[in-house]
């Protein structure tokens, strides 16, 4: 990877000695963005904005273009309304704070829960896990190992149990124990399967029987190597469970996760976390600036 010329390197060559952004620069920009999974429509939108800014601000050189790019792309990423989870702090006054974790198969939901539990615990919070994936082979065992690894309790039932009833028990237990945060794992499901999406809506309703304003956060986990289908995932999961945050996983690979630009722009959902490995500590609070920067790194 490192031997390939970076986008900014190409950009520098393309604009060297020129006073305007020409076709070649824009083509390079298009290639860099599309190759990062930003998608054609969002890429075109970004390029339009750059062209307008350049016309207005008088384009000077690579440094300025780089800054314009950063600004315009960052502007697409909505800022979290409450600056949530900075240093893994929880928004105050809601106890237990209930986080429902959803997403398609294999994106990293269970692992993200393990990592979150680790971070919250380190930040001095008491944590409870709810194993509402009773479907995938050994899903409960997997979450149980995470609960042991991190040292937090878990509410679980046997495989095949009604996931909504596990969620119900977990919320009740969280209230009874007075924990700070409850993390509920759910089975992976493809968003085009209506009955499975209905099951999620049901889990949500059951949680609300115990705590009417819960879940306080519905975290949609997206695999960073997923392409444009992630937009559909966001659309359908939002419809079923009112997604309030995103986590992007597997960004320790070569994939860039650029599709979240389109998602953040269309659905105004903030990205909260990124996954950068398989260990408990491999979770970071999302940083817009760093993310945009990484889109152009090879």
């Amino acid at each position: 990877q490192k031997t390939k010329e970076g986008f900014l390197g190409k950009l520098t060559r393309a604009v060297a000695g020129k006073s305007t952004v020409d076709e070649e620069v824009l083509d390079n920009l298009e290639e860099a963005l599309v190759s990062a999974d930003v998608g054609i429509d969002t890429t075109v939108k970004i390029i339009d904005r750059i062209e307008k800014r350049v016309a207005k601000d008088k384009y000077l050189g690579t440094t300025e273009l780089n800054r314009l790019l950063q600004e315009e792309i960052e502007a697409l990423l909505v800022e979290a309304p409450d600056q949530g989870y900075k240093d893994f702090e929880l928004p105050g006054g809601k106890k237990p704070y209930v986080i429902l974790v959803v997403g398609v198969n294999g994106v990293g939901k269970t692992t993200t829960i393990g990592k979150l539990a680790h971070q919250f615990k380190r930040a001095g919070k008491s944590v409870l896990l709810g194993a509402a994936d009773t479907f995938r082979a050994a899903a409960v065992d997997q979450l149980t190992i995470w609960s042991e690894r991190v040292g937090v309790p878990i509410v679980k039932k046997e495989m095949g149990a009604d996931p909504a009833s596990v969620a119900f028990d977990a919320v009740n237990s969280a209230v009874a124990k007075g924990v700070d945060v409850l993390l509920i794992d759910t089975a992976g499901r493809l968003h085009n399967k209506a009955h499975l999406m209905d099951e999620l809506s049901k889990i949500r309703r059951v949680i609300q029987k115990v705590i009417p304003e819960a879940p306080h956060d519905v975290l949609l986990v997206l695999d960073g190597s997923t392409g444009q289908n992630a937009v559909e995932q966001a659309r359908h999961f939002t419809a079923a469970t009112q997604v309030t945050s995103l986590a992007i996983t597997k960004l320790d690979g070569t994939a860039k996760g650029g599709v979240v630009l389109a998602i953040a722009d269309q659905f105004k959902i903030p990205v909260r976390f990124i996954g950068v490995g398989e260990k408990a500590e491999d979770l970071l609070v999302f940083d817009r600036h760093e993310f945009v920067d990484s889109l152009f790194k090879l």
Binding site: D223, S225, T226, G227, A230
Partner: peptide, 12 residues
């Protein structure tokens, strides 16, 4: 390989 994979499929 996951059929939802994006542009990175070629690298992998």
């Amino acid at each position: 390989v996951d059929s939802m994979t994006g542009q990175d499929a070629v690298n992998t």
